[in-house]
Design a protein around this nucleic acid. Sequence first.
DNA 1: TTGTAAGCGTTATCAT
DNA 2: ATGATAACGCTTACAA
Lengths: 333, 333
Amino acid sequence: MSVKIKDISEHLGISVSTVSKALNGYDDVSQQTRSLVQETARTLGYRASASARNLRRGRTDKIGFVFNNALTFISDYFAEIIVGATAAAEQNDNNIVLYTNEGDSPDSLLNLVQAREVDGFILVWNHVPKAMIEMLLKANVPFVVLGRRVRHPMASYIAPDNYQGAKALMQHLFDLGHQRIGFTTRPSMGLTHEDRYQAYKDALAEANLPYIPELVVETKIEPLSGYHAMNTLLDLPNPPTAVFAFHDFVAIDAQRAALERGVRIPEDIALAGFDGLRLSLFTSPSITTVAQPLNEIGRESVYAILERIKDNSQPPIQKTLPVRLLPRQSTQG
Amino acid sequence: MSVKIKDISEHLGISVSTVSKALNGYDDVSQQTRSLVQETARTLGYRASASARNLRRGRTDKIGFVFNNALTFISDYFAEIIVGATAAAEQNDNNIVLYTNEGDSPDSLLNLVQAREVDGFILVWNHVPKAMIEMLLKANVPFVVLGRRVRHPMASYIAPDNYQGAKALMQHLFDLGHQRIGFTTRPSMGLTHEDRYQAYKDALAEANLPYIPELVVETKIEPLSGYHAMNTLLDLPNPPTAVFAFHDFVAIDAQRAALERGVRIPEDIALAGFDGLRLSLFTSPSITTVAQPLNEIGRESVYAILERIKDNSQPPIQKTLPVRLLPRQSTQG
DNA sequence: TTGTAAGCGTTATCAT
DNA sequence: ATGATAACGCTTACAA
């Protein structure tokens, strides 16, 4: 079997507690025994047993990362966040454990922490029901919502700044001379949508432009939604000169609709998406978008959950991270 | 604190060992006490402590998933594999723990298993040095290489069938009438490259077509490599009528080179990639490619590692999974 | 500075 | 069918 503290202790003829202390950097060990212990540990190939240590310490140094599969079709999004999160975790001597919690009960989430599998978790869902949030708060388990703001004042989250991003995007369109700007919206399911929509409206108001209801097309969350939306807009007697699509996939579909009708982008109509998926760079024309700082979102979420784990009674951590406008061909030729 | 076996035992006035047995489905407990225990466990909200159980059982029911960051720029690849792996793990009462092991020593890999953080691990690297493989084998830690074949006869791997995929792709090009087919290769770093290259050569031979050295362009692994390769091929006095790019990113770059020269795809030159990244669907024209069964690769790797964990002395599991040709516009208009 | 010993929450062996 | 108890490997009062 593997080498344990006891082996070192016997090998050196000193007690296990001294070995443990030496290994864990306590200061009540002589310099000499410390280095002796450390060296034998190395030569013997000693590795502390994670479970034993966890059991004793009452923590796992593991962070749950709970995602639902629906998310993963946006693989750019998902992958980069994971990478950022994993790296941040490791730098803090923690690790990420993956869980797919497909619309499961909050109960099974509690399970994770209560079974002391992880010390806390990061929720990566496209929508976190209010009841779930409240249950988690009541159970006092450390958690952080990643990627979207949450309405509850006590819930922690790390999210992109959708509002400012959408504002910047609108400004970009204004700067290019657009005044009739379409917006593809969706059934509101939370603040991600609302923030972008509100920014659209505020930007118009601030530019002294009217809000024109028929320029706002509601799409369902389904494939081709952008395709239909674009067609609806182009069918208008007086179509917009630019379209702000709720996100990149919608924009890509919208682009196809335009191309099929022989409507040129950006000459006849400008088009922009949101989220900064890599896909939007490879279409022809490439699509202007607003990039989320995905790696950073992953990283900050880890920092946040580590804080929550340290002391879950602190005020919640609610952070929106700045996003970046990526002007591309679909708006500026 | 949380509910433990002892609480149930005291609550019911029976011993902890009986409770444990009832909970774990041993058959030497009366039906009556069993259901009694199960019910109280539920009402009290009992969750077995993972660390205590792990310590006692000597295993963790966790699988390490070790990736290096270089990989993650292929986010499609990465994300879908992770999803497949996570789901498969959960269905077998295991979980995936993420580790980024950026070119680290094999030592730190051993660490994972020897510290009993995980029972075994899946290696997701673009290249696994031979020395590393041998060290892992010698240390007798359960591991599986994901996504690429490995030369060592005792190493387990789950990989796409690059050879048959490349063969199918070549056949597709033959069927379209191509006889002069370019290939962008790369400094050989392992079987992934060799399999595709070998298939290219074998396909030519089987079709009684000559292998023409100047049609094979070596690219470096770097951005724009495909761009340069395509230019090299188009500069030939007698350029190929079709190009098989080593993988999708290379193909995308190659496409750009062609477009910039006014060379039309597929009319003037057909183009195909490999791997089936989603990106290749959104370019104009969309790029013919060979899709890896990513979800399945993730899943099968989990099955494989679970087998290794069960008994690491069994013969290695070496599996290539069938890939799927996706004919698109870049070859057939 | 070092050692002794209790305890973390389970599971498994052996009695009863 | 049930219970007492040791053991898993570690950390940490507390004693020496």
